[in-house]
Amino acid sequence: MPGTLTVSADVLRWAARRAMLSDAQLTLRFRQWPQWLSGESGPSLRQLEKLAKLCNTATGYFFLPQAPVLKLPIADFRSAQMLDDEEPSSALLDTLHACQNRQAWYKEQLLKEAAQPPPLVGCNRLEESALKSAAAIRRILNFTLSQQQECKGWEEALRRLVKAVEEAGVLVMINSVVNHNNRRKLDLQEFRAFSLCDKLAPLIFINGADSKAAQMFSIAHELAHISLGLSGISDSSADSLHERKTEEHCNRVAAEFLVPIKDIKNNYLPRAGLDANVAELGRLYKVSSLVILRRLFDAGFIDPKTLREKYRLEQERFQKLRKTGRGGDFYRSLIQRNSRRFTQTLVNSTMNEETLLRDALSLLGIKSLTTFDSLAVEFGADDGLLA
Rank of each mutant, 00 (worst) to 15 (best):
Q66T: 08
L96S: 07
N101F: 11
P68F: 01
L110G: 03
T95D: 04
L96W: 03
F77R: 00
A104D: 09
F77P: 00
Q109P: 03
G60I: 02
S79W: 01
D84H: 11
A67P: 06
Y61G: 01
A80Y: 06
L83M: 11
S90Q: 12
T57K: 02
C55D: 02
L92S: 00
A98H: 06
A104Y: 13
L111K: 13
A80I: 12
N56D: 15
Q81P: 02
L92Y: 02
L54W: 05
D84I: 07
N56Q: 12
L110T: 07
S90T: 15
P65I: 01
Y61I: 10
A75E: 07
T59V: 14
P65M: 00
A104V: 13
H97P: 00
L70N: 03
P68M: 03
L54H: 07
H97Y: 14
E86Q: 12
L93F: 15
C99I: 06
E87Q: 15
S89P: 03
F63N: 06
Q109F: 08
C55Q: 01
V69I: 15
A104P: 09
A80M: 10
L111Q: 13
A58S: 15
H97N: 14
D76S: 04
G60D: 09
L111A: 10
D84T: 09
A67R: 04
L64E: 06
L64G: 01
F62Q: 00
I74E: 02
Q66W: 03
T95W: 05
K71H: 15
D94N: 15
P68I: 04
Q100V: 00
T57Q: 04
E108N: 13
L111F: 10
Y106R: 07
D76Q: 05
A67M: 07
D85N: 13
A91P: 04
L72F: 10
D76A: 05
L96H: 06
S90F: 15
C55W: 00
F77W: 03
A91R: 08
T57N: 00
E108G: 13
